[in-house]
Design a protein around this nucleic acid. Structure first.
Lengths: 201, 201, 201, 201
DNA sequence: CACTAAACGAGACGGTACGTCGAGTCTTGGA
DNA sequence: TCCAAGACTCGACGTACCGTCTCGTTTAGTG
């Protein structure tokens, strides 16, 4: 009685999940992703490298992509914050330039590969949207709405379409690879973004 | 003699490639894609359905994706023409609306899946870019340049970035699935596109 | 403590080999051999019939022939015992007659086919020699030596060569098929065998 | 009329079989057999090496083994003659010693491999028996019968069984590999053979 | 000296089995 | 109850040869 009531939140019976294993899996995943693609990555290899049974991975994650997403979101992503400045224009511009810079490397490759995997795993894609995109989108939306309110941006703007155009340019290059995410793009796209958002001449 | 000098281009020795088999493979592929994803599609299944040996497929295509790309480009694509009208604005607007409508169905799903496969097969991605995107991009670029020349569009426009923003919006939705390629989008995006092209940066 | 010192032979980690699968493979093999030759037998067919993954077969046997040998030796062979009688002559004579009779049917065909496979797999041939021939040969040798000791057989006999001649006659007909292993042979060979063993060189 | 009646055996119309190709095939086969087994030998490899189309091989030979047999019998075999001496004993003894010596090398290996292949191709085995064994057997039989007639050998001998025992010893060692075809065997077997054939003491 | 007709080389064809790999599941013993 | 280990069934992989087929070419005899 007293025993259990004093114990904080007694979980279900049996051995609890091993945090050690969880960490090992995520770290092994990221490490392997340095030398392979998400596509070539196998659960077998992760288990091996992490020193973990395959069953343990299947117990806690629904698929390879789920592991990758968690590794990506939890460990690798310190996030790309929206700069906290007074001017909405400045915030947007800086954010986009930063995003392009980040996506030039490993980060961009992995995001693209996760989205690629997502094309055949709708549930995972939804999960990734929720954990990775939703907050960022909301934050950007907030900034844009502020910009509209304070007169920086066009009040008749179709916000969603505008945001899709701005971000879409980045992801389109990332995915299709027809043009690089280079310096010039990092300079041009923010300029174009603002031209989209601002009041019509 | 005339005989030898007129000798008509003798092909390489051996039995020539069977056009019948080629067709059968491509058609089987498209048919299977009605009920599965590119990811789930197997060469084994294609060979079976086409009544063709696996080796024949491997002889002529480098991978499953290569087959899908050829099937898609050769057979399924009567192309999405750029409307041939006087006004550049009108051409662009109509083309984008049409693209969105096409991508709502099977076509969009397959393009997305091909691009997804391409994330782990750079060579194939390049091939797809070349066979599917390059001409269309060039045509669009032409129209935009005409628009600039005749004063419809902004002469300081960064053309590549602008095109990426417009198309990127479509592919971003197609890939991420956060918002649908619906009627509203088909109405809003062309409007936004023109605002991008016309407005001074 | 007693606990650890008494610890009973813990096997290697992991799931132990399935005896069920082993049996299923060997039985399927024998069954298939009723309607095909060793040559035509495929690992694929064995796996199918046994309801077992191909990998399981490859994990435990080095080749098709290895499976056949094990099936043959473990399951099909209750052995051809050397009759346990006082007279060495009688033992040899009866044993040979029995061998010829046995080899007239399926048994002979399979032994011949295993030896045939062995011509291109020396390791397997050695294995088969060890598991199938060695003991029998030793037993026969024993009997012959006894016969020599008790005066039944020639004391100057070259035992190995003599045994090879006697058995060789059987296997020669089995392999070459120029003459049958018929009644007459079963009557003549034992007689010849004894004449070989008894007669002074 | 006269024309055709004077002409010797006019063959069928069309290009006649190329003796060059036939030779090339047989030579390529023998050469390949220096570095592989009959089992590993493929028609594809023969065709390649001989610079001949596969179809040409299939046109003239029924299988790989048929090619090997012909190569073996026509080209490699200068035959193992029965020594032509007065004494039957001497003839037999010398012949066996020679056979053992020959079979120690490549020759023995190939004969064994051909017989091995024959276990799954009865027709071919019969063909090989006919082309390779029959004459030799008949010759040996003749010598034995002479030996019987002139009193050297036992008149109650079961000739076939006796010959099988003598040759069988050789082939048994060749096939099973339990003991070598060494000097000692080449000395012992002829002695044993004569003891088998001669009059009972 | 063209014309037939079969054999030729080359090599693609539909198949079948190979041996391997990874998926996802199951079965041990130990923590 | 979880865990590592590792065996399990399953199914696709890409490869190698099989024996057959279609090409264009070559090489005789026939007319």
């Amino acid at each position: 009685m007293a025993r259990s009531s004093l114990k904080q939140e007694t979980g279900p019976a049996g051995r609890p999940r091993s945090e050690t294993s969880r960490q090992a899996v995520l770290e092994a995943t990221l490490e392997l992703l340095n030398s392979t693609t998400v596509r070539e990555l196998t659960i077998e290899a992760i288990a091996q490298k992490a020193g973990v049974g395959k069953a343990t991975i299947y117990r806690w994650w629904s698929s390879k992509s789920a592991v990758v997403i968690e590794a990506f979101v939890d460990v690798m992503l310190p996030s790309t914050p929206i700069p906290d400045v007074d001017s909405a224009s400045e915030a947007i511009g800086k954010h986009i330039a930063l995003l392009i810079k980040q996506y030039r490397g490993k980060l961009g490759r992995i995001v693209a590969e996760i989205l690629a995997e997502g094309q055949s795993e709708p549930v995972l894609l939804a999960e990734f949207r929720k954990r990775f995109f939703e907050n960022r989108r909301m934050a950007v939306r907030q900034v844009v709405e502020n910009g509209i309110r304070n007169g920086e941006f066009d009040r008749n703007l179709d916000i969603d379409t505008a945001i899709d155009a701005i971000y879409g340019a980045v992801y389109f290059r990332l995915f299709l690879g027809h043009l690089p995410l280079d310096q010039r793009f990092a300079k041009d796209l923010p300029r174009l973004a603002l031209s989209i958002l601002k009041k019509p001449a």
